[in-house]
């Protein structure tokens, strides 16, 4: 019984705190007009990152005006610059939270809502499917 009470209390704490604090973390950005794909990579990550980047460029080539493609380098040397770019685009929390899981792709709708996070190299179809979904979202 004691254990159940403690667990219930913990869950209530999580809910209360997250509801309270998340109000301040609302999506303050929304300036973008089109869907956006954000690729976080690291210059030191050779194998995996180098697999994703060409696919992204290929997709960009195919669907030129449909979406915005942003590459953010999370390596120590470029991190400050990337943080600045991410802030301008309204995805700074995405960079802060996932910079350590490169290569990672975030697919955002025009309203800057992340609908898909794809970690590690995947096939082109998977990225395309996520992008199509983002483009359909209003």
């Amino acid at each position: 019984m004691k254990l159940k009470r403690i667990l219930a209390l913990l869950i209530c704490c999580v809910l209360a705190i997250s509801t309270f604090l998340s109000k301040s973390v609302s999506a303050q950005d929304g300036q973008g007009q089109s869907a956006m794909i954000v690729l976080i990579y690291d210059t030191h990550c050779k194998t995996a990152c180098e697999l994703v980047r060409p696919i992204m460029k290929e997709i960009k080539g195919e669907m030129k005006d449909c979406f915005t493609f942003v590459e953010l380098d999370s390596s120590q040397e470029k991190l400050v610059e990337s943080q600045k770019t991410a802030k301008e685009l309204g995805v700074h929390s995405f960079l802060a939270d996932y910079a350590q899981f490169v290569p990672i792709v975030g697919v955002f709708t025009a309203k800057k809502k992340c609908i898909k996070v794809i970690q590690g190299p995947k096939s082109k179809d998977i990225y395309m499917a996520a992008l199509q979904k983002a483009l359909q979202c209003k």
Partner: peptide, 9 residues
């Protein structure tokens, strides 16, 4: 960095 075939962390 710890890198593998499936990505670097």
């Amino acid at each position: 960095n710890l890198c593998s075939l499936w990505g670097c962390v």
